[in-house]
Write a protein that binds this DNA or RNA. Structure first.
Lengths: 94, 94
DNA sequence: TAGATAATTAGATATTTTTCTAAATATTGC
DNA sequence: GCAATATTTAGAAAAATATCTAATTATCTA
């Protein structure tokens, strides 16, 4: 996992909101965009950041591009955090 | 928990390294600084960010200021992340 | 109280990030 | 192939962040 990329991606509220929207299942870029008062170009930038962090996956479906969550990385991240603080029941113990 | 503050705090590699150093137990600002090639002023800025996010606690001991981890917030954050991705065994379920 | 040490605050600059507009690419359907 | 729609890429401007030097605050000790 690219720790730095993941943390940077999560640091922006718009990007976290995008992830939130994807909890209900895959959506096209346009569908995600409906919820935000931001240009498609800016949104696209956020997608790129999320994708680079491997937090979302994409798939072209005709003229649409469908985004979906990559849950695996969230697990990794949560584990990493739990691992970052001492004492208390260590999880994986890499 | 101030979600935004916490994520922003975690986004910087120097700050994550500071947290890492504190895993072994409380340290003074100076002791923490030894590990970084950065001025005390810059370090102090990072401390302020971590403190504002409630990730660390401070206590003055004589002329020193002692920093320690606030594990509680890490737990909150990890929980929040686990909660952010769908399906799979929900944790707290607020 | 004066000098030394630890740390922070103030103010400036450099870098990074977010956002925008405009232009480009991909795909559909006539 | 052409117009329309969906999305991304390029390039620039605006906003936020990290870093520095210099000055300030707090504490200790001689």
């Amino acid at each position: 996992m690219k720790q730095q990329e993941v943390f940077k991606a999560m640091a922006d509220p718009t990007r976290r909101a995008i992830l939130k929207r994807l909890q209900g299942g895959p959506l096209t870029a346009g569908e995600i965009g409906e919820a935000f008062d931001i240009t498609p170009a800016s949104l696209s930038h956020h997608f790129a950041v999320l994708k680079h962090a491997d937090l979302v996956r994409t798939e072209r479906r005709g003229q649409y591009i469908v985004y979906s969550l990559n849950s695996t990385v969230f697990e990794d991240l949560a584990r990493m955090l739990l691992d970052l603080f001492p004492t208390k029941g260590k999880v994986g113990g890499k």
